[in-house]
Amino acid sequence: MKLLSDYSVAVYSAQECKLYNSSKVACLADFSAFINAPRPDSQQLYAIHQRLKIGQELNGSRIIILVPDAWLSVSQHRVDHLIPMSLRPLAALSYAVEATFSLPENLLFSYQYEPLSAQQSLLSVYACSCEWAEQLVLPFLSIPKTYLLMTISQWQAMSSRKRSWSSCSFCSLSLYQPEKAKRVKARQLFWCLVVLSLVLNSTASVYFLSLDQNTTYMRIARQTIQNTQSAWSSTHSANAFSASALDLIQALPRSARLEYFESRAQRAFLQMTLPARDLELLLVTWRQHKPDWRWEVKQRPHHPTSPITQKEVVDVSIKVFKSE
């Protein structure tokens, strides 16, 4: 497992301290027999250190040091109420100070919290003095390493898939850090704001690009109509029928897009695209203004749908004849 490949494990027992490299971390032996090993005195611990061989077993730049539970102060406290998350470190520190008779600033501790019911909870506290922790890590001080100190029972309670360095760091012994929870919360809030800012900026950019494309499309279409109308006006200004037809064309609504126009003698032909509802109103208006003209209208649904409007859009061909 990749998460477990960047640290080594040192396991203390009553007789020795044994190192495991990364390739063996996921399949370590059962150390439950070491949990109650008696705590050694200074001479016994020195002898254990003398027998320790530090060589190729070290892997990566970090070491997790596992010690028997009996070597630390381990206590369980049943509390007749639930403890808020923000107060759990302080509650664990109080129990650790009471159990070890050490000052808070000279104490390493960790805890596990378990709600038992709506009114009861269990707080397990692991603690030792800073002096004792320094003796346990002494043989590794000559190597530039980062250390975590845990009990064997804490290690055994963790699933092999969850024994990553970050997970173990939450269970390891450390000094009391009253601002740690605030820093964690502030860091989480910071990243939430970063993600929210990225989402908002991305959404705004996409929306702006969409508006810009639609605006450009409408401006080009309108300019095309104006240019076409101008050319037609200059070409057919002498023809009264064409001029009348052009007057109608120039009054087209904004929703209409003129595709083709041709006028000869007393006939005119045009093709355009516009919403079906606008076409109905336009034909009514034109027939009222030119009752002596004949109109042949052919229309079909326009595909694809116009990006300008969500209404039904049609392609229409209109032939206009002036009655004799």
Rank of each mutant, 00 (worst) to 15 (best):
V206A: 08
D247W: 12
A245D: 12
S166A: 13
V195F: 04
T203G: 11
K145W: 08
S169I: 04
I143S: 03
Q120G: 09
L209E: 12
Y147Q: 11
Y147N: 12
A118E: 13
A157K: 06
C130D: 05
Y217F: 13
A204S: 06
T228F: 13
A181G: 02
S242R: 11
D212H: 10
L148D: 06
I249F: 07
P144L: 01
A251M: 13
R161T: 11
N201M: 05
I152R: 02
I225L: 15
A240L: 14
D247M: 12
L193W: 02
Q135N: 09
F190K: 01
N201C: 05
S172H: 09
A186I: 00
S174G: 14
V184C: 06
K185E: 00
N239C: 14
S121C: 14
I143N: 05
A251F: 10
F170K: 07
S233D: 08
Q119K: 15
L189S: 00
A118K: 13
L148Q: 12
D212C: 04
S197H: 01
L196D: 02
W191K: 00
L136Y: 05
S233K: 11
P178S: 08
L248F: 05
L149G: 03
L200R: 01
A251V: 10
S174P: 06
I249T: 12
M158E: 05
T146M: 09
T235N: 14
L211F: 03
S172K: 10
S172F: 04
S230A: 12
L175E: 07
T203A: 10
S129Y: 00
T203W: 07
L122V: 03
S210G: 11
Q156N: 13
T151E: 05
T203P: 02
P178K: 03
V195A: 08
N201Y: 02
S197Q: 02
V184M: 07
T216I: 09
Q188D: 10
A127G: 00
L209T: 08
A221F: 08
V184E: 08
Y176N: 00
L198Q: 04
F190R: 00
S202G: 14
S244C: 09
V184D: 05
S153K: 01
Y217H: 14
V206T: 09
V184K: 02
Q226W: 07
L209N: 13
S205Q: 09
N214T: 10
P144E: 06
S169M: 11
Q188H: 04
K182V: 07
V195D: 01
L209G: 09
A243P: 01
F241H: 11
V199S: 03
S121K: 08
L196V: 01
I220Y: 12
K162R: 15
L175T: 07
A221E: 14
R183D: 02
N239E: 14
I249M: 09
